[in-house]
Simulated assay, not measured.
Amino acid sequence: MPLSTSDRSLVEPVFRRLNVLRPLSAEARASLEYAMVEGLQRAGPSEDVISEGDPVDSVRVVLSGWLCRYKTLEDGRRQIVNFIFPGETCDAHAFLLRVMDHSIATMTPAVYAEIKRARFETLVAGNPTLSEAFWCETLVNTAIQREWVINLGRRVAVERVAHLFCEIFERLRPVDMVDGNSCVMPITQMDLADATGLSVVHLNRTLQELRATGLIVLRERTLTIPDLEALQDAALYSSSYLQLYRRG
């Protein structure tokens, strides 16, 4: 049965992002489209898609909304260890392990596709470009984690928050979620604090400093970066780890 226009629109971010890493064949695209549409799931904000300790038997691909990976200490303190944006997978190869070692939650209403392990393995076995694209994404995610470790361990607060904003902006580009020098910023200061290892009070002071120096404008759930190069300089930021321009 042919896919509807709305179905194609919903899954388009996935192909925009994967094509940056590996050009997909028409056959690979068609196979993945049907698998995603068949497995559509919806979730409200602040819902766990999968929790630490859960068995893993599916691949989840985000179609809309913002999610995060996080760990929680016994006393309730939370550390966000990465964001997951439209077009990205939650766990492309996590099913190779027995259980999840972290949790994944929605930060906004979200739509995602859940592809069972057997179906996913058949997809990638029959489409080498698709297999390579998902492995490339896994490698990029590993690079992002290394950068976040540097962020938490060595960058000061202003550099830390500026770096996160640069990364968000760059990761939203391939899925056409950047409008000029602005992008959506639908998450709370608590989320930003948990992602940067700062208290909410310290995070708020840091945002005020970035605003005062004209590096960012944060208003009505929209982030505007008047001069991206200046913000990158302030963050000691290089986007090479995201592999966004690999094909070029």
Rank of each mutant, 00 (worst) to 15 (best):
E132R: 15
G76F: 02
I50W: 05
G197R: 00
P2V: 05
I104P: 01
E33V: 09
T206Y: 00
R219Q: 13
E121W: 09
A28V: 09
R205N: 05
C166S: 09
R29P: 03
L24F: 04
D91T: 10
P109W: 07
T108Q: 06
R146T: 14
C68D: 13
C136P: 09
A143Q: 15
L207T: 02
A35L: 06
L152E: 08
A157C: 06
A125R: 14
L96A: 13
A125H: 12
A125L: 10
R247A: 14
G76P: 09
D54I: 09
L215V: 06
A26L: 12
E121S: 12
E159Y: 05
Y112N: 06
G214L: 04
L96I: 11
R146K: 15
L21C: 04
T108H: 03
N82T: 15
E88L: 00
I115A: 05
G180S: 02
R17K: 13
Q189M: 13
C90A: 06
I80H: 02
T196S: 07
P86E: 01
L123Q: 08
L24N: 05
I187Y: 05
V217H: 06
L203C: 08
A234Y: 04
L21I: 08
T129P: 10
A157D: 12
V156I: 14
E167K: 09
L172W: 00
S199Y: 00
S238E: 11
G76K: 08
G214C: 05
G248Q: 15
P186Q: 01
S64M: 00
A28F: 01
E147H: 13
R119M: 11
E229Y: 05
A195D: 04
D233H: 15
S31G: 11
G53S: 07
Y245C: 13
L139C: 04
P2Q: 05
L123W: 09
G214V: 05
T5Q: 12
A28L: 02
